[in-house]
Amino acid sequence: MIVEVSRGQNIIRILSDSFLSCLIVKQALVVNWPDCRGSVGEYYAISNFASEDRYKLTNKLDSVLINGNEDQILESITSFLDLFSNGKYEIFFNELNLKKCSFHHENQVIYSESVPEIEKFSNGFYPFPFENEDYFFTILKKDLNLERIEYYIDLIEKGIRPKIIVFESYNINTGYYSSSYILDGHHKLSAYLKLGINIPAVWIRNAENEEDNTEEILKYIKPILKDFEYDHIIKNNK
């Protein structure tokens, strides 16, 4: 299904260029970029944007993502897209196969004791698995509610299949899609992972008009990065 947004509020966006990718929900939530050591992997930083503020943007979707049929979900997602920037969006359903997916969360790089704290990257480093599809959590582990995860585990064990939302964007300059971000459904996703069950998802894909936005990205990501991380991006993003 293709939906054209003409009165978008520009609250939810993905900005990307040929070097890095960034999810915006009012402010930068996640940014990931290459380590520049022969394409071994990528660095990954995530903000502490309050989960309750984000929940206000998605709470109207919760019920329909749990109990709604596909038509009801598509109707709700169409309204939800008013929070996005103008353009054409592809919406479709798919299942994340756990055997083919890697899910990235905070995972601190292991450093030797000689490396000072100020020189340690914020959240993590992940090696390229090449054969897997990569998906990024966009809230911190500390903001996950264990009772909420157990709630979804109970629903899933009863046969209900609540859906998560994945968001990605096409960059017309690079010819590639951005990283794939978990926009909503972190507790559901955590429940599925604990149970070892494939994850039903709704994709929102900006299929049309994202171009390189390097200057804008740098403005958004600076507050969530350490100075040396920001300098690493400036030095290598040429």
Rank of each mutant, 00 (worst) to 15 (best):
N198V: 08
E229I: 01
E215H: 10
I234R: 10
S39A: 12
K238N: 08
N32Y: 05
F80S: 01
N173V: 11
E211A: 09
S47D: 02
I149N: 04
T174M: 09
L81Y: 07
V31G: 03
N59P: 11
E215L: 09
V25W: 05
Q108A: 11
N69H: 10
N10G: 08
Y43N: 00
E90V: 07
K219M: 10
L98N: 07
A201L: 03
K226D: 01
I12G: 06
F130R: 15
A191D: 02
F19L: 09
Y176G: 08
R37H: 06
F228I: 08
K99S: 14
F136A: 01
F167A: 06
I182S: 07
I66D: 06
S47G: 04
K60T: 08
F93T: 05
E90F: 15
R7F: 15
E106F: 07
C101S: 06
I217A: 05
E52H: 15
V3I: 13
I118H: 15
N86P: 00
Y151R: 03
L195A: 04
P129Y: 15
L15G: 05
W33K: 00
L144D: 06
D184W: 05
N10M: 12
I233F: 02
Y152D: 02
I182E: 06
V5G: 04
E106N: 06
I199W: 13
L144Y: 06
K158Q: 11
I73C: 03
E90K: 11
F49A: 03
P34Y: 00
G175R: 01
V3D: 02
N97D: 14
F93I: 07
K99W: 12
F49V: 04
K100R: 06
F49G: 01
F19K: 02
E42D: 04
I12E: 03
L96F: 08
Y181F: 12
E75P: 08
L144S: 06
C36D: 12
E4S: 07
P129F: 14
E113G: 12
K222A: 09
T58S: 05
Y126V: 00
F49D: 01
K188T: 06
E215D: 10
I221Y: 02
I160P: 08
Y55P: 05
R161F: 13
S169N: 01
E157D: 09
F121E: 02
S51H: 13
S21W: 05
R148W: 13
K100T: 03
I14N: 02
N107I: 15
E75M: 14
I160H: 08
P200G: 04
D212T: 09
Y176T: 14
E229L: 02
E168M: 10
K222V: 13
S18P: 12
K99P: 07
R148I: 13
W33C: 00
I139Q: 04
L155G: 01
R7V: 12
I234Y: 10
I66N: 04
V5R: 01
Y176H: 14
A207I: 15
H104M: 09
E215T: 07
V25T: 10
N173L: 08
